[in-house]
């Protein structure tokens, strides 16, 4: 039971980290119709800038702010220089152009920060454990990530659901062209959406970096998982991103814990561990296949047309 609670919390923590990456990805894909492979690079920018600033100042809050802001600013710049030229191009062009960005970003961080990057250390007041369950001490920092994820996504939800900008964003998912005729500066709106998505990815990069080795390409794995999330949740749906992230975060974590244990019953220990881990890494794709068979547009996707 302790193991289950612990792994569930780990799964939620992965889920919320994924959610912060995939929320931006789904907004950008759903609203702007842009496949942005470089979204993971914004995660990386957040992690690297935070590592740099954290290393200099020793202040986690400053590092978090700097990493998030840097990702948002880089996102805005990229949208302005490259992405807005891709809106009317097909997805293949977008994939090629943003993949080029991934390669450039991966090289760029190495040129700036070298191959042996620092890391962000957890802030002192969270560097302890909390007993969440009898006999189960759990790192406070991991709980804080879950809380930060909830806060970030709630803010995004309020922005999209309650504000005028959010109304334009939702109107733009279905009537991109027409929105301009209602006095909305669609280009500026898109730059803003892109910057918000980028900032969230950067934020996720900072908060996740204590568990990761911050190195070139660190966001790429999150990018792939996030694409699975938004396909499962339904492209363009924030609600879908929430359910998709949490579902996949939990499935992935549970599978990595329990499948090796399950195979232990009829295989020798080391084989069970290897086979279990391999099957576990495929688990989210199994979920994706099942979801797509049942609901081809994802859990909360809009029907075609």
């Amino acid at each position: 039971m302790q193991l289950f609670v612990e792994q569930t919390l780990n799964g939620l923590q992965l889920g919320f980290t994924l959610l912060m990456v995939s929320a931006g990805l789904t907004l950008i894909f759903g609203i702007m119709n842009i496949i942005n492979l470089a979204h993971g690079s914004l995660f990386m920018v957040g992690a690297f800038v935070a590592a740099d600033v954290g290393g200099r100042t020793g202040n986690y809050a400053v590092a978090l702010l700097a990493g998030t802001a840097a990702a948002a600013v880089v996102g805005m710049f990229v949208e302005f220089v490259l992405i807005r030229r891709l809106y009317l191009r097909d997805h293949l062009d977008q994939v090629l152009a943003t993949f080029a960005l991934v390669l450039m970003a991966n090289e760029a961080v190495q040129m700036i920060w070298g191959t042996r990057p620092g890391g962000v250390s957890t802030p002192a007041f969270l560097d302890r454990t909390v007993t969440v369950f009898p006999g189960l001490p759990y790192p406070a920092y991991r709980l804080a990530i879950i809380a930060a994820g909830i806060a970030a996504i709630s803010s995004l939800y309020l922005l999209v659901d309650r504000t005028r900008i959010g109304m334009w964003i939702r109107a733009g998912t279905t009537h991109r062209e027409l929105l301009g005729a209602f006095g909305v500066n669609v280009r500026l709106l898109y730059t803003l959406v892109f910057a918000i998505g980028a900032g969230l990815a950067g934020f996720a990069g900072v908060v996740a970096s204590p568990f990761l080795s911050v190195e070139s390409g660190v966001g790429d794995n999150f990018l792939i998982l996030s694409f699975v999330v938004i396909v499962v949740g339904g492209i363009g749906s924030l609600k879908g991103a929430v359910y998709g992230s949490l579902l996949l975060g939990l499935v992935d974590t549970w599978a990595r814990t329990y499948l090796p244990l399950g195979f232990d019953g009829f295989l020798d220990a080391s084989t069970a561990a290897t086979v279990g881990a391999s099957v576990a890494s495929a688990s989210i794709y199994v979920v994706m296949i099942v979801v797509l068979v049942v609901k081809p547009n994802g859990l909360f996707g809009l029907p075609d047309g």
Partner: peptide, 24 residues
């Protein structure tokens, strides 16, 4: 001029097919 600039001068449109924003 861009559509938002034109509309802000005081033109507004009831488009063909109505085109209300379905998610709002």
């Amino acid at each position: 001029h861009r559509p938002f600039q034109i509309s802000r001068r005081g033109l507004s449109l009831v488009p063909e097919g109505r085109q209300v924003f379905p998610l709002l």
